[in-house]
Design a protein around this nucleic acid. Structure first.
Lengths: 343, 343
DNA sequence: ATGAAAGCGCTAACAT
DNA sequence: ATGTTAGCGCTTTCAT
């Protein structure tokens, strides 16, 4: 039995011997129709393999509640975990969710937003995108039906709800830990794109170094992760450090970088943590299983996603925080890659 | 300037002093309208921040070309790379793409398909989903507008184009390599969900073992990766093997499993590859950077995605293969985790 | 080169 | 409890 065109509500009505509006009623609120009629309709629906045309529904209802998510990189497990939190909440509540990749490009971001608007998405979540998109966001908010929230992204105006961890503090503490465990010559390798969170981490690292009198500009190394991929970028960053000297500690702005760096140390016969202590950032799943396991800072990523969902779908602002900044707790996870040698 | 309702084509027409149909003409084919009129229209579009309502467009045009992708697990980098290939081709050609997670659940798959159909998706790509969804697919194909292709999934009927590697052969070769390099007591750890590709790999492994007279049933260990996550599942599988004996070689059906297994060996002071040779499957990005680096089988994942895109969007079957099976080349990647000791 | 008008499939207000 | 009907925003003949 080949169907040529998908069945419409009219076809169902015809087959069931009722009016289209009755079919609609059955499909949307089951209690306003006599059971007998209802069964006839549902029978016809099944027989015709009927699926409502969402375009017609949404056109008619003129509003459409759907989450649009913008992420720089869809292959970064850090972002993916935040998206997972969003996705789970969407599944729980029946919201459609559309995830787009922006590749750190403002033009791409604009293109994606335009598409999302064309399909009447009205809830926009920005995860970790650059700081230059504030104008885009303002544009979006011109329509009061639109809602915006950020995850892992700051809003200094205090108008847009955003979920972050204390990036400054967590990085400050991580670097301090290295120092307190005896490191005196520490390098910090950071990713290239200086989003606000990454900037704040660097500030924290530098302040910690300064406070212990071990800061100098050349201790900060910018990895070439835009061109190379994080693992390889870490590998090259560490290689360049070793071409100058062997530090007694290294910190990276992400675990991926750290794993690339670790590989070089092993190749050179340097032992972690005996020769070099090491700490990453993000706590990706593999960090616990590397040899030695990697110390790191954990961000509650899924929880960030879940909270962001609430913020962007919340029509009544039941959630509040000073300056719309929701700061979640990070954890500092000490594993084998740091030698413990207090003092 | 707050806009309350998004601008419609009428608003644009009004402001530009033309008819709605003219606006439509301008927006869709630029050459049928006088330049002067065109500019007026584009001006109005910009002023009103106008974005076409895709629901209305698609409703009117009644067909909609959009890719719907179904994946068991959105946090598995293997699938993600295939999706990346699809996504790139979509971006190149302007197709929208909607990616759904099915979690190895038939019910979830059904739910997602129903949603995709409601938004008039007509191209369906199944990546690595179970074998029990053939009925769903047949249902889909009742409508001749719908198109289906598989990636990393077999179709034995020969009706549905599918892209795979030679899973049997690649696994057979990998196991043979271990044996030829001197391993005599080898275990194979496989993931639990026995999709056809995973089954074929196991068949290949077992045949290679048998051919060299080293097969026995207890050499095959099924990891508990449904409950635990692959890393941890690998960890426990290896632990259980070591509770019986120390093999001289292990192979895993995925790199993730292998990394979990590797950790146990290191903890027990067993050296790779001196004491135990090791090989994984999938060539995830980290495998090159682990210490020691992990030997593995590479699938051309992005290419699989790109080809699958062509197959599902191709209206004229310009691509052909025997039984609709498109077999891409795998690579066998030898790294440090195998000791080389021919004979 | 541009305008007028019909209709895609659905829902909701109103009528019965 | 169910049917009738108008109209969401757009494209696409068909006129002009």
């Amino acid at each position: 039995m080949k169907e040529n065109k998908p069945a419409t509500i009219k076809d169902v009505a015809l087959l069931a011997g009722v009016a289209p509006s009755t079919v609609s009623l059955v499909l949307n609120s089951s209690d306003k129709v006599r059971k007998e009629t209802r069964d006839k309709v549902l029978d016809a629906v099944k027989k015709l393999n009927y699926v409502p045309n969402n375009f017609a529904v949404s056109l008619r209802q003129s509003h459409y509640i759907c989450l649009g998510v913008l992420v720089p990189d869809l292959y970064n497990s850090f972002y993916l975990e935040i998206v997972k939190g969003l996705r789970d909440r969407c599944n729980e509540t029946g919201y459609p969710i559309y995830v787009s990749e922006t590749k750190n490009s403002l033009a791409e971001e604009e293109r994606q937003i335009s598409y999302l608007r064309s399909i009447k998405v009205n809830c926009f979540v920005f995860i970790g995108t650059g700081d230059d998109d504030t104008q885009l966001v303002q544009n979006l908010l011109m329509n009061p039906n639109n809602h915006v929230a950020y995850a892992d992204k700051y809003d200094e105006t205090g108008t847009i709800p955003h979920v972050v961890i204390d990036n400054y503090r967590s990085a400050y503490d991580a670097m301090t830990c290295l120092i307190q465990n005896g490191c005196e010559n520490v390098y910090y390798v950071t990713q290239k794109v200086m989003s606000a969170p990454v900037q704040k981490r660097m500030d924290g690292v530098i302040d910690a170094m300064k406070q212990h009198g071990i800061y100098s500009e050349n201790k900060i190394v910018v990895a070439n992760d835009v061109l190379l991929g994080k693992l390889e970028a870490g590998y090259y960053a560490m290689t360049s450090i070793l071409s100058k000297e062997v530090p007694d500690g290294v910190m990276a702005s992400s675990d991926y970088l750290a794993i690339g760096m670790k590989r070089v140390l092993s190749e050179r016969g340097l032992r972690i943590p005996q020769d070099v202590s090491m700490i990453g950032f993000d706590n990706i799943d593999i960090s616990r299983y590397t040899v030695p396991s990697l110390s790191t800072v954990n961000q509650p990523r899924e929880q960030m996603g879940r909270l962001t969902f609430s913020l962007v779908t919340d029509r009544d602002a039941t959630y509040t925080a000073a300056n719309n900044r929701f700061v979640l707790q990070h954890d500092f996870i000490i594993r084998e890659s740091i030698r413990s040698q207090k003092g």
